[in-house]
Design a protein around this nucleic acid. Sequence first.
DNA 1: ATATTTTGGTGAACACTGTTTACTTTCTGA
DNA 2: TCAGAAAGTAAACAGTGTTCACCAAAATAT
Lengths: 217, 217
Amino acid sequence: MTVSVSSPAERRRNKIRARILSAAERVFAREGAEGLSIRRLAENIDYSPAAIYKYFNSKDELVDELKETFFELILENVNRIADTSTPFAERARDCVATYVQIAADKPHHYAAAFTGESVTQAPVDGEPGFAQSKKGQAFMVLSGMIAEGVEIGAFRPDVDPALAAKSIWASMHGLAMMIVHIPTFPAFKIEQETMSRDDFIQFHADQMIRGLEVHHG
Amino acid sequence: MTVSVSSPAERRRNKIRARILSAAERVFAREGAEGLSIRRLAENIDYSPAAIYKYFNSKDELVDELKETFFELILENVNRIADTSTPFAERARDCVATYVQIAADKPHHYAAAFTGESVTQAPVDGEPGFAQSKKGQAFMVLSGMIAEGVEIGAFRPDVDPALAAKSIWASMHGLAMMIVHIPTFPAFKIEQETMSRDDFIQFHADQMIRGLEVHHG
DNA sequence: ATATTTTGGTGAACACTGTTTACTTTCTGA
DNA sequence: TCAGAAAGTAAACAGTGTTCACCAAAATAT
């Protein structure tokens, strides 16, 4: 084993890999996976199309890496909020809100992160480490927060945190997907008089959390 | 104008159109839009690829028709349930459950119905009749049911039906998408001990509705 | 310093895709 | 019967992801 953790050749290679990813990121953010063609990408970075295959085994692997770093971004933000000491209810809402907002900011990333997940295709034995994936980690943070809510006494004592987390995650996901696919959501363009997107996100988060709260009528 | 509402030529044409759609439906259900190629489709029905363009202007238009009839299926079922006289709470849950279940049955249809909706692309002026589309009608049914819930007194009097409907629709949509993209949802394959899918759908529906109910503590 | 192997890069091809064009055949309406 | 429309087709265009044989340069080993 060499003593230097990264040889010059290795660093040079990583640099080019990063340049490819960076160029890919730019066009992917605007046009999604369909719009990102190997040939166009190669032209952008002034290489031959085949060269890219020296750095990535396939286009799918390349965009997988884009998706993973995207969820890393979500995870970082959500985690940062989850660790603050603001009141529990606010904190929970803020987590949901930033999750959805980041999704709305990079719609192609978010949609692809789930869509590409192989519709209907059987999981490849145990799923390649959902718990390890950034997506899985983001879910764990959410799940942990809900457990905290139960401990604190903010939520009904009979809620199963793992179960409730899945339900809330689904609801969050739904709102994110709606915004991603219907750019004007929650408006339908017919109606002019509607709540702003940010307000609606808050409203939705409240609605979700209300389902877990103890009924203090 | 001819006296016969459909000439023999016209009927023949519709028959072939239907055969194309039927063949397309079969492969689309299994492999989605990507797997459905004009050439394969043409081979299935024993025509030349170009022939299909005498019946449809583009592949997109063809699959749009598949998606629309799919949402027609959802609309019919949800409508049928909404019109029964079973207790309100059950009825509401059943609507959600069947919506999600039909989505789970034809994952490619459901995913495509939203995914193809043009991510991030500006709506083509007023959206081509969302209220007229089967999707829009399905939303109206939901919205109506919630309004009914408010009148009945089952829901808090301060809920805006249109707003709540959007929130619930988003939550429904999220669960449907989760199931579509993660075939084992709500399990993550790591954990063996989990609630069954149907039970989870019920749980999720309860959770959503609880957010609207009056707090009878 | 020389020989050898690995790496980075390429042009050309393969097997696909949706779509269009020019052309022929078939059917239909007057 | 005959003009014109409709139905159907082969071939090509312009893309796509990917692979293969090949070459040069750099890293490694002798």
